[in-house]
Design a protein around this nucleic acid. Sequence first.
DNA 1: ACTTACCGTAAGTGACCACTTACGCACCTG
DNA 2: CAGGTGCGTAAGTGGTCACTTACGGTAAGT
Lengths: 105, 105
Amino acid sequence: MARAAAVLVALGDPTRRQVFERVAGRPHSVGELAEALPVSRPAVSQHLKVLKQAGLVSDMAAGNRRIYRMEPRGLQDLRAYLDHFWNQALAAFKTAVEQPPKEEG
Amino acid sequence: MARAAAVLVALGDPTRRQVFERVAGRPHSVGELAEALPVSRPAVSQHLKVLKQAGLVSDMAAGNRRIYRMEPRGLQDLRAYLDHFWNQALAAFKTAVEQPPKEEG
DNA sequence: ACTTACCGTAAGTGACCACTTACGCACCTG
DNA sequence: CAGGTGCGTAAGTGGTCACTTACGGTAAGT
């Protein structure tokens, strides 16, 4: 999936990963996250935007504040991507075991 | 795990992801990869170094050339990382269903 | 209506990273 | 030993991105 790439990029950044991990543990407002992290509130907003586009979080208005919570979709996409290569690796390994290494090209 | 972060960073780059995907499909030499990709051979070498440090590929000398093949370790680390949050999400969702949303703070 | 709180966006800047060319080293062939 | 091939590393550079400050917009409080 194309989403898997976005998820990889999104979780590649350490700060963004921290944001995601906190949101995954419990829904948070932007201010809460910024207060717990060593970056400014706008930075958190930008990170949340990337995470949202990757399908890793979703947001909803709660009065004055805006609550972000984890969205399984993004994780599922990345899992599917990984499983693809995981199975490929197993198949390749199985083939390598069944057949002795033969010279090629 | 700490390795999961390295895997996320490694697979975050598009070119590096292409390198990994080709190696995952079949063992390749550096020259083969460089020939199939729109970057120079040193670039491929640098990408392979990162992938190797992330536990995604392993290399072995084959005469003059150097063969890279997929290493399941890195994928497994990332899978474990994802599963952690996956289960966390399921637990949170289950709690949210069982209990109506109550005000807090 | 005025003030305060919370948030997203715009613009600008510094640092990191992917890429290139140049070079040195190991292995095979004649 | 000399020539050729395959690879990794060093050094340098351009582009991208994470971060900051400044600003506008919406919702609650008095």
